[in-house]
Design a protein around this nucleic acid. Sequence first.
RNA 1: UGUCUCAUGGUGUAAUGGUAGCACAUCAGUUUCUGAAUCUGCUUGUCUAGGUUCGAAUCCUAGUGAGACAACCA
Length: 574
Amino acid sequence: MIQKLLLFSNIAVLMEAEETKKSLNFIEAIVEKDLQEGKNGGRIQTRFPPEPNGYLHIGHAKAICMDFGIAEKYNGICNLRFDDTNPTTEDVEYVNSIQEDIQWLGFKWANVYYASDYFQQLWDLAIKLIKDGKAYIDEQSAEEIAKQKGNPTTPGIESPYRNRPIEENLALFEKMNSGDVKDGDLVLRAKIDMASSNMHFRDPIMYRIINNRPHHRTGSKWKAYPMYDFAHGQSDYFEGVTHSLCTLEFEVHRPLYDWFIDQFANKDYRPRQNEFNRLNITYTVMSKRKMLQLVQEKLVSGWDDPRMPTLCGLRRRGYTPTSIRNFIDKIGYTKYDGIIDVSLLEHSIREELNATATRVSGVLNPVKLIITNYPEGKTEMMEAINNPEDETKGSREISFSKEIWMERDDFMENPPKGYFRMTPDKEVRLKNAYIVKCTGCKKDVNGEIEEVYCEYDPMTKSGMPESNRKVKGTLHWVDAKNCIDAEVRLYDRLFIVENPSEEKEKDFKELLNPDSLKTVLNCKVEPCLQTAKPLENFQFQRLGYFNIDPDSKKGKLIFNRTVSLKDSWAKEKK
RNA sequence: UGUCUCAUGGUGUAAUGGUAGCACAUCAGUUUCUGAAUCUGCUUGUCUAGGUUCGAAUCCUAGUGAGACAACCA
């Protein structure tokens, strides 16, 4: 018994040592320190707070992994909270897609909350601030207020309405919510410091009027809506959030976050905001505004266009939840705002699919290969291993006959140095079949190759001793008599420059890659793909990883290329 | 000419005063019935100048560079 206990404690120690081997990111370090100091009674609570006004992208995935990851790691909880304080752009469509995407990534929230559920509490707090002489109604135009704000290097000037009597402020605040006042005519501002070096302290707006569109949850009950700065920290407080984690651009908001909470909070509990770097990836954009433009101007097919960095786009492209989470895990969290090479993302999906994807044959740009000495009408079944990285996946049979489709690029009459595919008088191996020797080709009047000819060596069938002969090239193929047509969509980077957001003088849309989508029709693929399910991943041998696009219908297969295989030959040619 | 934040190979990230390590990318080789994967190896880095210290990527000072902030967006 004692020995058993000792063993267990040793294991615990070892496990701890194992765990501490992987260094903590700075947020985890903060959390552990808070835990050691017994802050908030050792309770850990985070939240993921999207505004339901767009689709989640891979940048959100980074925040999601942080928010949910911290809760999971430290036995806390993470809630999903919709920051729905601005009805003009928000919609239930987004509420739903956001929940779907989080679940797809594999995270579970403790509760779903809405900032709109706190509208009454926030309203009451605003009234308290007015009564304390710390908030007032301004009736100047947005332009006037902006002008008075000054700029980061010159102080602002005070509003003429700043010292309005409390009773008048209370009456006008009520009026803001009556529906009788036009948008923009009245705002509630906090009375702080128009000369503050932090622009957010120059009497920030707490409430504004939005009449034009009912709220997707509260309907037309409210006309005056709280601003982010007045809603976010309080919502965190109401919910009992201990660590309010967000991205770096909110750093300058933190003093205001604390200031509002100071106005009413008791001293024994306090949510703390900490900021980490947001995700940027080369050759794409990570701004909701820009993505929305691409969608609205139909420069992409929608939020789920496989070229988009949205989670629904990546999913459709063939990315898996684990590949995205592994990617996020690799890039880490710091306060340095850099840009991640997209090749790391590509590596994450290749790494996974290499281990899991079934190998099949697909010929994208087919040309007929005729094995002249192969008996007419004969068909042989060949064994094809489903995944050489995973024996448990077994094998399947594929048919082989006199006429097969091969890749047009795999034949050259006058090849460059280093080419070891099909070329006259040279031998190549047909994957899972025979070694063949090219004997020539037939061209049409324009010199286009119509057919390629070869002779097979019957002794070299895969598995036979003779087949071990050293042959440099191995080609994929499909049986012309037994294959199906498919459409294949090849994707390239969406933009032609590494960082489209950095180009100041050019509109980012001018930097779109005109060749980001190539649709290839009449590709030939193995018949077994007929029964493949939407989003199922495959490796087309020698070409890359592909999945079934959800637009596929029976009889009309559509594949997306998730990512190509690495290709050192293509590199060498350059 | 303000406030805040940041600075480690090409990119990202570790080292928490004590041997600058890892991943991706690159290149070379190995292996291969996928020009993939595997395996091995190479190259490349602490922004600058001072200071503290036996010892500094790490602490201090100054400089340089970068980012965020001037929405009735979040």
